[in-house]
Amino acid sequence: MKILVCISKAPETTTKIAFTDGDTKFDENGVKYIVNPYDEWYALVRGLELKEANGGTVTTVTVGTSEDDATIRKALAIGADDAVRIDAKAEDAYQVATEIANYAKKEGFDLVLLGKETIDYNGSQVGGMLAEHLDLPFISLASKLDVDGSTATLDKEIVGGVQTVETNLPLVVSCAKGMAEQRIPNMRGIMAARSKPLKVVEASNPNKNTSFEKYALPAPKSEVKLIDPEDMDQLVELLHNEAKVI
């Protein structure tokens, strides 16, 4: 089975968010990048488990610049066989999905795994766009994925519950919690990652359908109102009359 896992980088989760250039750019000063947690913990690890059970290969793909190579090496250290970087700065979901689709069409994959969303722009867009480009079914927010021959069985989140669905490969899946457990790379993996192939391919530079023009930080919360722990009637009264939420 040929598996492709889409890997993106994201600012470390405790990053303080600030903007520069008249609030038109994310301030990357001192920001540490990690592999987007959903891509690493769920998509990549499940891909590796399926490979371990059924044989095959796991390739990662990233649309990014050489600045992304460190996060790509981390994915290789966890166990991917090889990596591809499509050489362009990722700025728009349509751009990213189109680049990955062009690459995936050429190579042909049985399974394409993505994270549920990137934790910086939180779009949840790339998976659906990629599936439409490839004219494949897309199972979003899957918490379980098993493959038997050419049949895939998945659990996916639906409003108010979970649905088990079945469909045929090839398939695009976005991965959420439950799919797999985080794997910490060991020393051997880290050493091996240094010599694994990281191929850089030229971008096809499609249109960018959207752009971020400006950013803003939310207004700071006003001071917390402290309530006497003995007097919960007062809290209920405030929630009813002042906050008007009950």
């Binding site: 939180n122 971020f212 023009e213 400006k214 950013y215 930080l217 939310p218």
Partner: peptide, 10 residues
């Protein structure tokens, strides 16, 4: 954007 830590204008 940034998990609710900021707004972006698209």
């Amino acid at each position: 954007v940034f998990s609710g830590k900021a707004f972006g204008y698209v």
